[in-house]
Amino acid sequence: MVFNFMKARPASPGHNLSDLAVGESGILEDFDMPQSIAEHLMNLGFVPGLEVLVARSGPGGNPRVYRVDGTEVALRRDLSRCIAVRPLGDAEAEMR
């Protein structure tokens, strides 16, 4: 299967990882991408149900660095757009 991230959009109208600003966090929900990439992300700690934080943005604003499960991983915008998240409110993030 040939996959083009640029054309892909998450099927659900909900939030995705690229919607979050630096310093915001969310709960990982779903991946809209080929299985092999999703598996690689999960190996790196992007497991649905875990909290992910947008740690910083690179010099050009792309890729951005995400903190998940104690590690930091850089992803391009086109990929982070395919990761559905439930944004955490500030209070909720504080609690966790």
């Binding site: 040939v2 991230f5 990439i37 790196l44 930091e72 991983v73 992803l75 391009r76 086109d78 990929l79």
Partner: peptide, 12 residues
């Protein structure tokens, strides 16, 4: 050499 099913994923 079109890359299929790969993306830039870099562990820091």
């Amino acid at each position: 050499l079109r890359s299929r099913d790969v993306a830039f994923i870099m562990e820091l």
